[in-house]
Design a protein around this nucleic acid. Structure first.
Length: 832
RNA sequence: GGGGAAGUGCUGGAAUUGGCAGACAGGCAUGACUUAGGAUCAUGUGCCGCAAGGCGUACGGGUUCAAGUCCCGUCUUCCCCACCA
């Protein structure tokens, strides 16, 4: 008998599986398919324990599904474009391409050490020209369908990374860069956007999707749908300045979005965002200086400063007036930075009596407060003496024709509200409207290491896409990296020079590259056929494998990648490129492995756990099993070196139990029956836990069964048919968790290669059934005894046995029971 | 300020969803084997109590024969969003 030596058996089996193509997934119409996808890694250099934590249970689940009879596709690749490689290049001069592909080579080796069932033939790398050719092609499709457009926009800009950031890449109260932690600044740039907002409504539906509630809530809040009305407020007093500036008699009305049209009669002033286009027109000469100063200050102010103001509202009067369309009241127009140009229409009607922010502003600047919603059973509200805005339900007052209408207050689009909207629509003063917080996706990045945006600008013909036959637009390799804030492609002497695809005249390429979330929005499609050249994917492969059945990854992508990829799928679907409502049917998120100190792992803290070291010391199987065992997968936990010993011990004991010889079989029928029962009970639980992604209890159930088997072996069960079945089923259950030791022991047990092509055993319910059951007996809610009865005992028999118990009689003190409850044969409860 | 998740031994965590709280591990203690052990095995390990027994799932109430699980309130921690009209 040899000792368990993972360093010997693991590479051996990995090589054999690879050589045999054991994990190749090919179209097979005779079997149901299962597309198991785990989020692809960024090639940072070394595989992190977090990658193991995310990927090995996903692999185990994919293996389980395969044994269940599914044709399982479990692919892998690299999200290889991105900032870190380029930032490193600026620092040490190593070309991002060289570094990235070196890292990929290194990480491939590390990934292989997991023993996962990846089909490496389907590997896709987003920085390969054959890959980003299609990323560019998708951009052009989106452009052609009006979903990509260019506009000047104030963007968040990281002065350290020298690039723009999407809204979701700006983190924290100090609004710092997701990658480097530097506080971001605002900058005005011409940028490319995708119209994600066109799909806001579609993205809010999760019909038919098995996604965690948590992710759905995060996405729903992120999309931020509000119902209300748009209302036009005409500008009052056509001033000479207005007609002059506009060259027309009439100034356009100020349009506002409100969720409280029922409070329209209480609108006593208006507030525009400082950037609002009507500000200049409305501002009177005597207020011009003040308004200009405020605008300048607001523009200069970073968002940090706005926060630091501790929500103290500031603003200035423009001197202009608007007319409240419902009651013709002449109301002043102010500007204030608490109104955001990026939400709604960039202008609000202020109803201080019923909105907290407007109330604070009105009190600060002495503006009128008119209550229009009266809470029932309360003294009449008085605008001069109110101490806070009233946002609750009540009846409309001071509202002319609407007086007496009941409304439910903030956040309720009730019938009262509908009535007001209908009234507005009848008079063409406004209309029902929906507003979203979601903004269009800014995809331009002023960086080198990304997919070039395939657009050409011609002085005569404007912007046009690169002809599809010219794709890919290749990244030049001879570039310089300088932290200038401009794309290195712009500084390249010749790269941007090209000809216009329309007129043939001299033209310039777009020098920005695409946000890497663009690359990762469709990688699950490239995996289908990375060898395919006629399109982004082979439709045959698509029709067989899509949609993704199980998608696993971190929750941090809830409002980024997971929204983008859904948008992408839906946009492509409407172009006839993809099919179905959604790209990923089921989603499961793992938690995070923290350092031993309970803090997030980081090099600077020195609490990083290197999986390579663990594999060298314990073997991949132990690391896999421990990562599944030591925490609830969806929760994560701090790492513990102490805990892994227990898992290592378990596999050593298993090895010894299966490989050590034993005497001839000589054991009771009872021992054999009990062994078989335990095996099938464990199988039942493990099957259920795999289905529900509860990996920690899979391992603990296998540990328990090993303890039972050890006892059975001591009782002489070795060599019996029950023993052989136990080993057989045990190794099959172990195979998804610890593929190497399962394969080795399977071979040593004399079974045919490979354990991984075996089917998942089915539970023999008859064998799993208990013959006798132990039922706890409570008297007045307190546990007093346990009785043992045959499993098929009737409730009457159980009750009789319970009442006959000495311990029970002692506590009932001879009194007749008032009530006896037998709960699903699990417990007897006696009340006296 | 809004939304969400969680709170169980010394530690990680179980509890088949209202039915024996603490499975399985780690740690610790005692013992065995050993020149040695980052090896192995055995036993014990929620708290109080000599015991009978009592008490125990953040805290306070409630529903129920029965509550870690359901309801109401409070506290703590973490995550996300945050002037969103």
């Amino acid at each position: 008998m040899s000792n368990y030596n993972p360093q010997e058996i693991e590479p051996k089996w990995q090589q054999k599986w690879e050589a045999d193509g054991l994990y190749h997934a090919d179209i097979d119409p005779t079997r149901p398919k299962h597309y198991a996808l785990t989020m692809l890694p960024y090639p940072s250099g070394d595989l992190h324990i977090g990658h193991w934590y995310a990927m090995t249970p996903s692999d185990a689940r994919a293996r389980f599904m395969r044994m269940k009879g599914y044709n399982v596709l479990f692919p892998i690749g690299f999200d290889a474009f991105g900032l870190p490689a380029e930032n490193a290049a600026i620092k040490d001069g190593i070309h991002p391409k060289i570094r990235t592909y070196q890292n990929i080579e290194r990480m491939r080796k590390q990934l292989r050490s997991m023993g996962a069932m990846w089909d490496w033939r389907r590997e896709a790398i987003s920085s390969d020209p054959e890959y980003y050719k299609w990323t560019q092609w998708f951009f052009i499709q989106l452009y052609k369908h009006g979903l990509a457009y260019r506009k000047m926009a104030p963007v968040d800009f990281c002065p350290h990374c020298n690039t723009t950031l999407a809204r979701e890449q700006v983190w924290g109260e100090d609004r710092h860069c997701e990658r480097c932690g530097t506080p971001v600044i605002k900058k005005d740039l011409e940028q490319w956007f995708f119209k994600t907002t066109a799909y806001a409504e579609d993205l809010l539906s999760y019909e038919g999707m098995d996604w965690p509630e948590r992710v759905r809530v995060l996405q729903t809040n992120w999309i931020g749908r509000s119902e209300g009305a748009q209302v036009q407020f005409p500008v009052a007093d056509e001033q000479p300045s207005v007609t002059e500036k506009l060259n027309t008699e009439h100034c356009p009305p100020i349009t506002v979005f409100t969720t409280r049209p029922d409070t329209l009669w209480g609108a006593t002033f208006m507030v525009l965002a400082p950037e609002h286009p009507l500000v200049d027109i409305l501002t009177t000469p005597e207020h011009k200086a003040e308004v200009e100063a405020y605008k300048l200050q607001a523009a200069r102010q970073s968002d940090i400063d706005r926060e630091a103001a501790d929500k103290e509202k500031t603003g200035v009067f423009t001197g202009g007036y608007a007319i409240n369309p419902v009651n013709d009241a002449r109301i002043p127009v102010w500007i204030a930075d608490y109104v955001l140009m990026t939400y709604g229409t960039g202008a609000i009607m202020a109803v201080p009596a019923h909105d907290e922010r407007d109330f604070a502003f009105a009190r600060k600047y002495g503006l009128k407060v008119i209550p229009v919603i009266q809470p029932e059973g309360e003294p009449l509200l008085d605008g001069d003496t109110m101490e806070a805005a009233y946002i609750g339900p009540g009846r409309m007052i001071n509202s002319g024709p609407m007086d007496g209408t009941y409304v439910s207050g903030k956040g309720h689009a009730d019938t009262g509200m509908q009535k007001v909207i209908a009234w507005l629509e009848e008079r063409r003063l406004g209309a029902k409207a929906v507003s979203y917080k979601l903004r269009d996706w800014l995809i331009s990045r002023q960086r080198y290491w990304g997919a070039p945006i395939p657009m050409i600008h011609c002085p005569a013909c404007g912007w046009n896409p690169v002809p599809e036959s010219d794709l890919p637009v290749l990244l030049p390799e001879d570039v310089e990296w300088r932290p200038t804030g401009e794309s290195p492609l712009k500084l390249h002497p010749t790269w941007k020079e090209t000809t216009c695809p329309v007129c043939g005249g001299p033209a310039e390429r777009e020098t920005d590259t695409m946000d890497t979330f663009m690359c990762s929005s469709w990688y699950h499609l490239r995996y289908l056929s990375p060898w395919y050249h006629q399109g982004p994917f082979d439709p045959k492969e698509y029709d067989y494998w899509m949609p993704v059945d199980t998608y696993t990854g971190g929750i941090e992508h809830a409002t980024m990648h997971l929204i983008y990829t859904r948008f992408f799928h839906k946009a492509l679907r409407d172009m006839g490129i993809t099919k179905g409502r959604e790209p990923m049917t089921q989603l499961r998120n793992q938690g995070m492995v923290l350092g031993e100190d309970g803090e997030k792992m980081s090099k600077s803290r020195g609490n990083v756990v290197a999986p390579d070291d663990l594999v060298n010391r314990y073997g991949a199987d132990t690391v896999r099993a421990y990562l599944m065992f030591f925490a609830r997968w969806d929760m994560g936990a701090p790492w513990s070196y102490a805990g892994i010993e227990g898992t290592a011990r378990w596999l050593r004991r298993l090895w010894a139990l299966v490989t050590a010889p034993a005497g001839p079989a000589a054991c009771s029928d009872q021992t054999r029956r009990v062994l078989r029962r335990r095996v099938h009970q464990t199988l039942r639980q493990v099957t259920r836990d795999f289905e529900q992604f509860e990996f920690n209890t899979i391992v603990s159930a296998l540990m328990e069964l090993l303890n039972e088997m050890t006892k059975a072996k001591e009782a002489g069960a070795y060599g019996t048919p029950e023993w052989n079945e136990a080993v057989d089923i045990y190794l099959r259950m172990l195979a998804p968790v610890c593929p190497h030791i399962a394969e080795e022991l399977w071979e040593r047990a004399g079974r045919t290669y490979s354990v991984h092509t075996q089917s998942w055993p089915s539970v023999d319910e008859e064998a799993a059934r208990e013959e006798e059951i132990v039922i706890p007996v409570q008297v007045n809610g307190k546990l007093r005894d346990r009785i043992t009865v045959p499993a098929d005992a009737t409730e009457e028999q159980i009750q009789a046995a319970a009442l006959a118990s000495e311990a029970v009689q002692k506590f009932t003190e001879g009194k007749p029971p008032k009530k006896v409850i037998i709960a699903q044969k699990k417990l007897v409860s006696i009340v006296v």
